[in-house]
């Protein structure tokens, strides 16, 4: 079987087509919102929110409401609670996050375990993703969320840039920083919700941080960081999906491992700050001493 066949063959199945589109969308929006998490040093908050969506999902299921909507509400509520705890007591933000997300997560697991006995849902699918089981309505939800996320960020990009770089400066000129904070947190919650089906709540944070960090090491502008991050995210998702199909492994971990490979490459070989780039350049910069081996001899 040649490579083209290897790539095209699985797409004869409807579930694979849906999975591929879903993977591309999720890879894209995770990369974009993840870039904000990275530059604003909110990675841990992203992690907390991703676990905190669980009870919302379960409660919505019980009420017969849209589970994506329930998860979104839970994510935003958790963010609010974290803020309320650390502003109203001497407990610091990291501890507040730990308390809130583990409580929400536990409640979510209890509720879902109870529900799954009577219904056709599987806790593992929420935790680790089941991209091959994406239904048409799931896909539409993911698509709508993706459009909202991308449109919002394109429309208020310059305000978000100012606010995420220099919150005090942004506030001093009268930008509504509280509202911008809320927008970013909502976009992050929405991204997590859209990604549940394909990577699962436990690993979505990795798909938000992996491509973004890869791009962060390679670029000097937020816009290019986001675009490169989208490329890395989309490729990781697609490759991960095929790996998941052929090797019969969970889609979430497969996608995350591919994005980790990109990160390691960027970490080692980034032109400006790669760990190995530094050594390679040092090697080249050193004037060659007469009588020593020619440089090409060192090269593999």
């Amino acid at each position: 079987m040649d490579l083209v066949q290897l790539l095209v063959d699985p797409l004869q199945y409807g579930f694979m087509q849906r999975a591929l589109i879903s993977a591309l969308l999720v890879g894209t929006i995770c990369a974009i919102t993840g870039s904000y998490l990275i530059v604003r040093r909110l990675s841990m908050l992203g992690d907390a929110v991703s676990r905190a969506v669980m009870p919302g999902l379960a409660i919505a299921f019980l009420l017969g409401a849209n589970i994506f909507f329930g998860a979104f509400i839970a994510g935003v509520t958790a963010t609010g609670l974290i803020g309320a705890i650390h502003t109203n007591s001497k407990i610091k933000e990291d501890t507040a996050m730990g308390i809130v997300f583990s409580s929400f997560f536990s409640l979510g697991i209890i509720l879902i375990t109870k529900i799954q006995k009577d219904n056709k849902i599987d806790l593992n699918h929420f935790l680790f993703g089941n991209i091959l089981g994406v239904s048409e309505s799931d896909l539409i939800t993911t698509l709508v969320i993706s459009i909202i996320v991308i449109a919002t960020i394109s429309l208020i990009y310059k305000e978000l840039l100012f606010h995420s770089f220099d919150p005090l400066g942004a506030k001093s000129v009268g930008l509504p920083v509280q509202a911008l904070n809320l927008v970013v947190m909502s976009l992050i919650a929405a991204t997590i919700v859209a990604s549940m089906q394909s990577v699962g709540v436990i690993l979505v944070i990795a798909l938000m941080l992996g491509p973004g960090s890869t791009a962060f090491l390679l670029t000097k502008k937020l816009k290019t960081m986001m675009l490169l991050s989208v490329a890395v995210g989309a490729v990781s998702s697609t490759v991960g999906l095929y790996l998941s199909y052929y090797l019969d492994i969970s889609s979430g971990p497969a996608v995350v491992m591919v994005s980790t490979v990109f990160f390691i490459l960027s970490f080692l070989f980034s032109p400006r700050q790669g760990l190995l780039t530094h050594f390679l350049h040092k090697d080249q910069d050193e004037p060659s001493v007469s009588g020593s081996l020619p440089k090409s001899a060192y090269k593999p």
């Binding site: 530059v39 040093r41 310059k158 305000e159 840039l161 100012f162 995420s164 770089f165 220099d166 005090l168 400066g169 942004a170 001093s172 000129v173 009268g174 930008l175 962060f216 670029t219 000097k220 502008k221 937020l222 290019t224 960081m225």
Partner: peptide
């Protein structure tokens, strides 16, 4: 308002031009 230099994350992916353009934002 020009904040203290230590209040800013200098690793932030922004160029000199980006930062000055923030002054035009409002």
């Amino acid at each position: 308002y020009v904040p203290q230099r230590t209040a800013v994350d200098w690793d932030y992916p922004a160029t000199v031009e980006d930062v000055v353009m923030m002054g035009r934002c409002i």
